[in-house]
Nucleic acid binder design. Sequence first.
DNA 1: TAAATATATCGCAATATTACGATAATAAAT
DNA 2: ATTTATTATCGTAATATTGCGATATATTTA
Lengths: 109, 109
Amino acid sequence: MGVTKTEIFTAQQNHLALTLKALAHPARIAILQHIIKQNACICNDLVEELGLAQATISQHLKELKSIGIIKGNIEGTNVCYCVDETVWQQVKKDLNSFFIDNVNIEECC
Amino acid sequence: MGVTKTEIFTAQQNHLALTLKALAHPARIAILQHIIKQNACICNDLVEELGLAQATISQHLKELKSIGIIKGNIEGTNVCYCVDETVWQQVKKDLNSFFIDNVNIEECC
DNA sequence: TAAATATATCGCAATATTACGATAATAAAT
DNA sequence: ATTTATTATCGTAATATTGCGATATATTTA
């Protein structure tokens, strides 16, 4: 018990859920917003900007990387993070599909 | 430790994160899709459709209700669930804002 | 009133998430 | 080579999530 039963859902449902989960934390939303605002940024910028420990920021970056929505380029001792445009657009598309495919909503009963 | 530090984020960031979290489970995505497909449905339909225990479905419905995206009308011993159109549109708008306000994405470094 | 039906809630066990200090790994600068 | 700077990973504590059986609640039917 206590484990999500992924086997009873479709690949699409599981994938969308994983994507949403990766985005479903205020720190990760803030990280994405900051990366986009600055076009790119290094881990330490986020530590100062958000006021979370370096280990915590690094962990959140890892989760965002896990769905591919950001990528990091090594530049000396820094790692420069930016959004992966292709994945970003795909996520946008997946969410739109979910909301647009289901348009004819009527009120209840 | 181990608790999300909501106080260091904006209300908008926290709200979007909560919304995404409520949607970030395959069962809840499946529930929403089924409700929309059937226009409305009762809890027991979902139990049979998804193959999760009645208590589990009820809990997932509660989480969806917590962000207001679904509402339930009591009809005898049944509760008829459907999407709250206003909230649905608002969620759609919030997500669009997040993705559309951040359009000029460039590749990294 | 009693039985049947549908849903919600409680309590619990298994697992996952969140945050952080400590430490490792890597590259630049001295 | 050693120090400095940046990031990743490990280990751990606190908390949250997931799923389900058992039970409570509420309405309908017999």
